[in-house]
Amino acid sequence: MDLHLEHITLVYPDGDSTLTAVDDVDLTVPAGTTTALLGPSGAGKSSLLAVAAGLTQPSRGTVTIGADVVFTPDTSVADSTRVRLERIGMVFQSPQLLGSLTALEQLELHAHLRGKRPASVRERGMELLDAVGVADHAHKRPAQLSGGQRQRVAIARALVGRPEVLLVDEPTSALDHERGTQVVELITGLAREMAAATLLVSHDASTLATVDATVRMLDARLEESAPLAAVRPA
């Protein structure tokens, strides 16, 4: 399913005035493709990602997955949480793995959050860990993994629930160029394979050779003024 961000505006209170973090942004990410969102610090990339994830309510505009409007300025916290659980996968800037869980348990956690038996996703979890190249470390805790391995586990965790949308925030910020490129390649490949509409925020364009499209944000707006960003066919 495609991800549509329509007329997204996000305004924060800033002392006596307000700060516009995202200003009337329209963006569509087709299913199975990866769009990289580039721009300098403070451009509004992470704010836009937070709105796309339902972590922040937009001041105006809607987020649609397929034909379903999932986030609006009036969406409740409980509904946002449910949508994230059922339809969205997230990869954070740092892996954000839970210290007490093994790599495989990080993936099983998703099933538990959905009220299913963790064992029900064990096979798929192992497949995903294999796909991201850390199957041999399935029973290790985060402290026993390298930074790159942790990030790969985080990518597998984001995909274990077969999300329709994958949102990725600066996945290469802590990695060198080579490993950063590998991680982006991994994400775009898996997103294509799983038909997930993937929006990837990055500050490093050199690692984005495998993405399907790039858009730039500057001063809270997309540089392209067209309602839908141009997306390079897969």
């Binding site: 994830a53 994230r84 659980l85 059922e86 954070f92 956690l109 959050l113």
Partner: peptide, 16 residues
């Protein structure tokens, strides 16, 4: 707090 924020971001409800 950090873990709880991640769990919420992953879709863990407050009740859970």
């Amino acid at each position: 707090s950090g873990d709880i924020a991640v769990l919420k971001a992953l879709g863990g409800s407050t009740g859970y």
